[in-house]
Design a protein around this nucleic acid. Sequence first.
DNA 1: GCGGATCAC
DNA 2: TATGGTGATCCGC
Length: 728
Amino acid sequence: MANHCRPQGQKPPALRRSSMSDRRTSISIDERPSPPRRDGIAAGGRNPQRANGMESVGAAPDPPTEWNHEELHVEGELAGFGDDEGLQGVFSQDFAWLSQEHDGDQDGALASTSTHDDRAETSATEGDGATGYRFSYSAHKAGMNQVDRAKINARIAELSKGSAYYENEERKSEANRQRELRLLDQVREMRPIAQSEPHRAKIARRIAELEATRDLTQTIVHLDMDAFYASVEERDLPELKTKPMAVGSTMMLCTANYEARKYGVRAAMPGYIAQQLCPELVIIPLHFDKYRAISEQVRAILRDYDQDMRTAGLDECYLNLTAYMQSHDLSDPQPIVQEMRDRIVEKTQLTASAGIAPNAMLAKVCSDLNKPNGQYYLAPEHETVVNFTNKLLMRRISGVGRVTEHLLKTLGVETCADFVREAAILSLVLSEKAFGFLLQSALGLGNSFWSNTSPQKSISTERTFRATRDAAAWDSTLSSLVAELHTELESSSRLTRHLTVKVKSASFRVRQAGRTLHKYTTQTTDLLPVARTLLAEAVAAVTAQDGGAEISMLRLLGVRVSDLIDRGVLEKRGIARFLIRPGAETGTARAAAATVESVKSAAGSDRAMAEASSSADAPRDRDPVDEAVCPVCHVVSFPASMTETAMVRHIDECLNLAALRTRGASTVAEPEVAVVASPRKRAAPASGPPSPARPSKKPARLSTRSDKRKGGSSGSRKLDDFFAPADA
DNA sequence: GCGGATCAC
DNA sequence: TATGGTGATCCGC
């Protein structure tokens, strides 16, 4: 299935506070590995994966990569809400003229609106009570004035209040508020250190070092389709243009047209709330096939300018125009970007907005400035970039979300200049990763480079349903989810070794339980029993959270598989780990030596054995890759031509013989592979007495499916446990 | 390694 | 009646 790609190369923010216990008198920000700190603000993750950092400063940017899972998302109904929504504004007040200029009917991204993750008010004062910032759809755009905004927010609060969702948001807000208070305590305590000369010098040095990495040689474009889904629907049904309209369902809206936004209708708002704000609202269901096709048309155009262009969902792309400009001997990117946007309109009748800047982070910010149907060019001059960045609100940085924004505000940081000014103290109370990311971003130093595509790390599927405590219904849903994952694994030739079950109760509390499996597998027969156990654990946990008087009702079930590996890679790597170079003496080999005779005597009987034996006396001084020796008997060698199945069979046979011979599990030659069994002792779900780790008999096949299952938490594994059944 | 939390889309 | 789904990362344990 597919890839959902995201631009990489930006470090994710993550905030945490240092604990008292690891405060040090001499703070070295520069320390490579940040010392573990505790009591942190919850970490925030973001997609940009490995930060490639600036290792290639000055060089041509890496070719962008492909994304990982786009269609997966798409198939899942709601792909994402991000469209052209603005936030609270891009700049601090003193730069608000820019906002004015584009506000009003232009929808100005500068004027803020809030998307799903952004429904928050920036200031708690507008909210009600402790939670304020979490709960109001502040809409500062589309011709709304302050009064309208306040009215709408009040109305939304009124409509939401008392719902389980709302209550849960309140709980979360309160928890965050407590963390912020503790953070402020830390600030007070750390202040003297922050103000000490050595520390200030250290920060200054760090900033200088970052500054030295500034690269203005690249021309990066971020292109973003305007209100993508809504615009597509309007294009195909023009009468919608004059009506308030949103795309989604009564449960959840994905995006709204500009007419609807005037009423406060926004992306990520439940449709039934939106309908109360705007009774004439027309809700159009999603048509992902259409969006996908149009998206591909757009991408095809953009590839003319950057073959390695990267997509971010269906409606966003990043391009590096540097090479194109050089090859066409152009110095001004603006006409080029205008041309692409014109071509997009011509081809699709849809408009796009774009930002042009020296790096991807700034380009992303810039693409919002003249939205919709506009572009903004941030010239690659030091002074221009610095002036721009200084006024930039931290919230605009991709990776700084609602929670982080609020937290920073608590610390008195709103703009990038604020952050840099307070860097000395912030370096002491934020995690090293978070501080590093935020400082770099606040200096306007987002990466211009993309890391190469990284393999997908997990596959998940989850489903929301009417809250129920019907265990049979849960089990039915769980089975479906596991079956979906099985299908996905099979169709992509991958296996998993980790399973996680997620649960959301009617109170919106979320709990998850996961477990590392004993082997890589795709099989429902392996996954489902574990999933059932995990579900029971998660239900118990969420029930306890909910008060525990009665088993909680669930409104969502989810299953995720991670620790994925390609089948081919697993087979190669798996077998390779068993191969011991001829002559290598290991404890395992020595332990197995006693079984050599029995192995030899049994050799002739098995077909695989015969295969192996036939080349057992091949010369032993060749490349070890070409000739490996069975790690168990340490006698039979495996020629390169030998099939893996045959090798596995031989090793398995050796283990069987070894087990017979030594009669004790512990002395059987164990493959030298560390297999991590579940570290936790889980209560066996009402099974019989604990079975011995290994029955003393049953020599024929050391490992059968049922056998494997039984040995669940045993630390010692047999060969079969390392390989998925070759069910193909 | 696990679970909770944040973020993007 | 009623507030989504997928994937990733970070942090504290």
